[in-house]
């Protein structure tokens, strides 16, 4: 038998071909996004994003500088607590260039990143190296029990530093 391919009428062969390829591409269209979704877990076994750091009065400035940087939570949570005269804020210990952990040099009053040499002053503002912006800050608030709570899931970049939640007045 001879089939004219230029005719648009539906033959048994063309219908089956359509069905076959249709099923193939439908399966593909469902399974590819599903496989990609598979790679994004619903639950993460990472450290909880909020943690208590103590009462506001626990933080005070030693000596006659205007800043005090607390390194207590750096090892576990990658956070520095900075106490200024009348505010406390949480600085994210993660270089804004490529995410290495900077180190705090109290004598110089400088955060230095070991990876590409970015440097930040005591309030986290970048002044040397490739870092594109100041160190980010994390949400800090006073909980119901009067204790300070840091929430790492909310990150503020430098143009949001005046927003509520970036610091606590004391």
């Amino acid at each position: 038998m001879h089939t004219d391919v230029h005719k648009t009428e539906i033959t048994r062969r063309s219908l089956l071909s359509l069905l076959g390829w249709g099923a193939f591409f439908t399966t593909l269209a469902i399974s590819v996004p599903a496989s990609i979704r598979f790679l994004f877990p619903r639950v993460l076994f990472e450290k909880p994003s909020t943690f208590k750091i103590g009462a506001p009065d626990d933080f005070r400035i030693n000596g006659n500088s205007e800043h005090q940087v607390y390194e207590t939570w750096k090892a576990e949570h990658s956070v520095w607590l900075v106490k200024e005269k009348n505010r406390i804020y949480a600085v994210h210990a993660k270089c804004t260039h490529l995410g290495c952990t900077p180190n705090w040099f109290p004598d110089e009053g400088v955060f230095k990143c070991p990876c590409h040499g970015s440097q930040f002053n005591r309030s986290g503002v970048n002044f040397a190296g490739p870092a594109p912006r100041p160190l980010d800050r994390l949400k800090i608030s006073i909980g119901k029990d009067g204790m300070l709570v840091v929430d790492k899931s909310r990150v503020y970049t430098f143009n949001e530093f005046d927003k509520q939640g970036t610091y606590v007045e004391v």
């Binding site: 990609i36 790679l39 994004f40 877990p41 993460l44 076994f45 990472e46």
Partner: peptide, 17 residues
């Protein structure tokens, strides 16, 4: 939490995943 790096690492940091 949903970018390409998350897809590769299976998390926001380099961890068990």
């Amino acid at each position: 939490y949903n970018d390409v790096r998350f897809m590769i690492l299976g998390g926001t940091e380099i961890g068990a995943n």
